[in-house]
Design a protein around this nucleic acid. Sequence first.
DNA 1: GCTTGTTTAAATGTCTGACATTTAATAGTC
DNA 2: GACTATTAAATGTCAGACATTTAAACAAGC
Lengths: 248, 248
Amino acid sequence: MTLDGLPPHRGGADELACLLARALLAGHWQPGDAFPRELDICAHFDVSRNQVRNALANLTATGLLERTAGRGTRIRSIDDWHLLDPLMSAWMAGLADPDPQLVREILAFRYSAEPVVTRLAAEAAEEADIARLESAYQGMTRTACTDRAQHAEYDVAFHDAIYQASHNLVWRQMGHLLRPSIIALIQRSQKSLHRLEAGLDDSLARHARVLDAIRRRAPDAAERAARDVLQRTAVDLGIVADHAPANG
Amino acid sequence: MTLDGLPPHRGGADELACLLARALLAGHWQPGDAFPRELDICAHFDVSRNQVRNALANLTATGLLERTAGRGTRIRSIDDWHLLDPLMSAWMAGLADPDPQLVREILAFRYSAEPVVTRLAAEAAEEADIARLESAYQGMTRTACTDRAQHAEYDVAFHDAIYQASHNLVWRQMGHLLRPSIIALIQRSQKSLHRLEAGLDDSLARHARVLDAIRRRAPDAAERAARDVLQRTAVDLGIVADHAPANG
DNA sequence: GCTTGTTTAAATGTCTGACATTTAATAGTC
DNA sequence: GACTATTAAATGTCAGACATTTAAACAAGC
């Protein structure tokens, strides 16, 4: 596969890395394929070999590529991608249409993890955490019917605040996964507009119950409420059966 | 702080990165401190600036350092470290005595996450997964009283097999956290030897119940058994109260 | 005296070209 | 046919000069 379809490049190794990463994430190449050589990339984008090497270093650090001297550069399998690397999340977040399997996997993860995280948040939240949750929730209600992009940002902020409130170093890192996941969902539901509109009130009500449970420091209620928030989407994607909340 | 106490360096930017990373993880510098300049590192280890830059690139990619042109290199706060980066896990795994707070945080994470992961494993495990679990368990019993290092490796393999069996791309990545965590626990319990010996039979029995529940495809039992495996350590570290398993 | 602007030093970032090393394919030899 | 040199092509490394950014020192002006 060639570099032909890719957008132009203004400057900076990071931008170049982002550009190439998105092409990889979009499935432009297949695992095992050979990636273009350094000098070809230099020529195509008219940048120095240094920039290319820096960009490729980022791509190998996230497990997208595998480089060996003499052999060349190859695309690694999706199993080897470091989905939890913040760089990866940043690249995925701006992706036009991400791999459906990836979206599904991340959401399956969230559906299993967020109830537990929300329970921890209800046990450990301090005033500052609750203030952040409330601020994000109010932002969501304010922008519900007006600005869809802003609404998504507040949605991300709300869920990120939950991870932060768990007060655990590891869980907090996973807030990075939220932005790509939520943006992908927005794009998905835009394809069936009536569903989005109908689901908005319902979604807001469920978020409110999460906030309330955390504020009341009620772990069990928080866990149940968190599961309800993701339930609809999980059902849509076939991650879980319709009727039975797994641990309710 | 200077580079004086650090061990010598044979070759390779990766080794240099590992060396510096371990010094950072051991708390050799404080967050906000200035890190030595490139040329000083070159001089101290007698390597080219290229190697140093490659090593430092790894350290910035994992969030340990922050570099800005003209300003220099500074140590970032522990909150910004990318604990889920496989590089980080590799560096932590060989660390002589890791930061106790870090061990505690990772174990708190495992205590909340592994029950859920084990539930997923019981739902999704295939023959190959169960075979891997059995092989690791037999390795644990075989080396229980003989080779402590080997026993730890089988312990890691057992828990990693659980994450693999969840058949979720995100959870599978977190197997990386196991090696440093388990090794840290081994080192910790070596300080009170009698406890280690006494607890071994008990630990093996609990692992057996996890394996059995997954083999029987019994999610509820698997979740409970997984919680029991970590319960003792969680109590020891003050992560959870003694009497009440949280969701039993 | 305080602010503002300029200069200077010092750090990281970048470019370039040459060379080293590894790998795989190819041709040659017994 | 199997083994061994040879060669070509890719990534990896080095060294030196230069660019850019930052912060501090310093000077001028109100």
